[in-house]
Nucleic acid binder design. Sequence first.
DNA 1: TTTCTTATTGAAAATCATTTTCATTAACAG
DNA 2: CTGTTAATGAAAATGATTTTCAATAAGAAA
Lengths: 154, 154
Amino acid sequence: MPGLDGTGPPWWGGKFRGCGYRITVPRQAILSVLSKTEDHLSAEDIYLKVHKIYPGVGLTTVYRTLDILVNMALVFKFDFGDKRARYELREGPKGERHHHHLICTGCNRVIDYTDFVDEEKDLLDKAEKGLSKKYNFKISGHSIQFYGLCEKCK
Amino acid sequence: MPGLDGTGPPWWGGKFRGCGYRITVPRQAILSVLSKTEDHLSAEDIYLKVHKIYPGVGLTTVYRTLDILVNMALVFKFDFGDKRARYELREGPKGERHHHHLICTGCNRVIDYTDFVDEEKDLLDKAEKGLSKKYNFKISGHSIQFYGLCEKCK
DNA sequence: TTTCTTATTGAAAATCATTTTCATTAACAG
DNA sequence: CTGTTAATGAAAATGATTTTCAATAAGAAA
């Protein structure tokens, strides 16, 4: 198999080893695909892209690798309400961008937005503190999303 | 079939007709179950409860009815990350309570909370206005949830 | 480099919530 | 009471994801 292109976050090699995982061609290919897009790809989207370059890589491996990447906190997994999960590298091509999603219930298009995230952060921090104390809950994450109809669909 | 107990929101009879739907025994039974719980029931949970009293009612009908109820805005449909959808009557036994969810990723327990919902509402209103203008998006709803580990699981 | 161990893999089968199909039944308008 | 047709249940279909299992390849050790 030909070598990879070396794109993608440079640090995951070490992180992988650190977690006891082997660095394999399919895993590199999947990370490479994720690192080259701004989109919210489904497992099958990723499979198709990887498959073009490495036809040997199967869908099962894509699922397994994505699971690992999510557990390693290298990748976000989202659920936008259609059945398939979507995946996004935490550190995108332009560095980490904290953002949320605007989901069109008409065409399933997803718009990233970064407006209000600062205000949101304040509120979320406050809520997190209050809730974790009141309910004795160890909060590890949150999700905010808006649903509606995009320009074209409304 | 024996009659129903007459619990549940009193107004849905008319609302049903208004939408051109027939009032049937399975539909009444499902609404009755929903109106008697504070829990976040899955379709199968509801099926099992309904089935105890009306063994003739099938799971398919539960799914179909829930779909209708969600579309009529009588019921909320949630996705807590385990695969099954959860359903909640909008107007619960104690009247409508605007609340959000704290989801334990350990045991899948869900805690309703109403703290911070006022502050959240302010933020959400502001965000909704801003986003709908900026992205020309007609916002129809939102979802906020926190994930973490509950008392027992952490 | 070569060998060895075992994590990783792909293909196919299994899962499982949800949806569809279709012949039968029951709401309810007239 | 009767006719129309929406609603129903059982079974089959769907579709994303997971599991199984024998074959393969990563990387430590020799």
